[in-house]
Design a protein around this nucleic acid. Structure first.
Lengths: 326, 326
DNA sequence: CTGAAAGCGCTTACAG
DNA sequence: CTGAAAGCGCTTACAG
């Protein structure tokens, strides 16, 4: 079913059909009705491929997430969706799974003109490989801040937040503060680790242990915690770079009979709903997830409207949520 | 940058460029090299819109999820992704948020020929409104089983699973078993409620209370539980239709000082990782999430390959995971 | 092994 | 207010 058939059915030209379809130009009322009737009668749906090929505009934004199962990502996506919708854009989600091949495959949607722009949440270090395909298409990098790249970004001050968390633990009297980090390919992982070391060094505390979780699942958090427990001295505090990791750590601590926060204090990161269902509830650094997504869309739309505009960096505020685990 | 330019640069026709692009037909080695060189030199990327318009094939599957933040959905999506990838298909995720307008908007991707088929996880009752747009495009409905519709589905036997859960509670000696259900627009919600009532009726137990959560968040689970606590007699067991709801219920119980399972036993549904991070850990009905996604793709691909084939229904096995909450 | 040409289904100046 | 025609960037018989 094409616009041709509709034109034929309605006894007008394709141009006229196109005009009523797009509500533009002027069409005599009687013709409009005829066209509308023909459309309804044949259950016609316009071919988006043809339309977008012609107009070079899709009204769609691609969002590339490393892991939708992560509640923080899901929250950011919600912010993205809301803002996009408000501006008449639809969003397409691709789960890259941090896999470079899969990312590249998804990027074809961009280079292939199926979407007008892209928001990535991938690891910073994978970006160079991607940027070739992205070229100078509208792009903003989300929740992964990089000061040197020429791409627009929105995120928080990760180092600061991390320092704050450690200071919190220090103020509590903790002596052996361990960290559960994630893949150092992520800039946030690097920055938070840097903050961890800085804060401890500044306090003259040389006891530093870091375990790296293989992904952001609770399971991986448990594993990481068990690694930490393997050493000579037990940590009396754990700072995890994600609530899901922290949740897994809490679980592992509990199964070892270590009370939280008495024996081991725990601080998480993200401020997701996960922190409310663990026991004890999780103290955590909350990111402004929705706002991050929202800002990302704003930057992207700006770039789409004016492709020549310069890259912009937005830093949003985090805050600490004190609950029972610290 | 178009195939035209490449042809010009390489000094061949567009047909030849197309042939090397698609690795088909035969091209003299020297010409192939020239084309490849031109492509590299100009960082050419094929326009997918044009290609798909011409071939009427996209290699993409649309997955419409009501809520990606739900871990069960995320697991199903993982199964979908894996199976799709194995068959050379890319997947596009759309978060409908159970919103009919948003669903319709996403469906334009299908009717607009941008994707070859669709997997929905929406509520059954919204489907009639959608089926008009879907027409007879390849479609499978996932995790929401309907015996009467003509669309392929894959799911579990919800009523049975629900009955089993209630019997478990009954066997434990629970007398006042409440249910936390979700929107009855979902068939699974209807079926599980039916199972709940049937099992209690069969046991001659007339004490039946149901609270409906406004969504599938832990927060909504807590709210629902508090409603349940409002009545005259306290329940001594709660069956929740989702792990996230159950997690919220556990949290609310704990804040009321009600011990689980001693004062109130709890059983969840889905078998997601959430059940492992709550305290106590959650006993739950586990769905074969990955397999559900995988089967859905198989059915869909089958339908794409042979559009005339009949709708198929697949019922997968669930199993009970006994943990500490019951 | 290669190229000219038709055509996928739209939109949009342009002329009337 | 309307239609004929060009063109978006591809692929694919078809002829050579």
């Amino acid at each position: 079913m094409s616009i041709q058939k509709i034109a034929q059915l309605a006894g007008v030209s394709v141009a006229t059909v196109s005009r009523v379809l797009n509500n533009q130009g002027t069409v005599k009322e009687k013709n409009r009705e005829r066209v509308l009737a023909a459309i309804k009668a044949s259950n016609y749906q316009p071919n988006l491929l043809a339309r977008q090929l012609r107009t070079a505009r899709s009204g769609m934004l691609l969002v590339m997430v490393s892991n939708i199962a992560n509640p923080f990502c899901a929250d950011v996506v919600k912010g993205i969706e809301a803002e996009a919708e408000q501006n008449g854009y639809r969003i397409l989600l691709c789960n890259s799974g941090s896999d470079i091949t899969r990312s590249q495959s998804s990027l074809q949607l961009l280079s292939g003109k199926m979407v007008d722009g892209i928001i990535t949440m991938d690891a910073l270090t994978t970006l160079p490989e991607l940027s070739g395909m992205i070229g100078d298409a509208p792009w903003v990098q989300c929740a992964e801040y990089d000061e040197h790249s020429a791409v627009s970004t929105v995120g928080i001050h990760d180092r600061e937040a991390s320092i704050f968390a450690i200071q919190q633990l220090l103020a509590r009297g903790c002596q052996r503060i361990a960290m559960i980090n994630h893949d150092l390919n992520y800039k946030y992982a690097q920055l938070r680790e840097q903050g961890y070391r800085e804060a401890l060094n500044a306090a003259g505390n040389g006891w530093q242990r870091i375990a790296y979780a293989r992904d952001l699942s609770a399971e991986a958090g448990s594993e990481a915690l068990n690694q930490l427990l393997d050493g000579d001295a037990l940590p009396d505090a754990v700072f995890a770079v994600s609530d899901s990791l922290a949740a897994g750590a809490l679980r592992a601590l509990s199964s070892k009979g270590l009370r939280v926060p008495e024996a081991v204090a725990v601080i998480g990161f993200d401020g997701t709903e996960l922190g409310e269902i663990t026991s004890p509830q999780l103290s955590t650094i909350a990111q402004p997830s929705r706002a991050i997504g929202q800002q990302a869309v704003k930057l992207l739309l700006q770039k789409i409207a004016d492709p020549g505009s310069a890259a912009e960096k937005i830093i949003l505020d985090w805050h600490y949520i004190a609950r029972a685990s610290c």
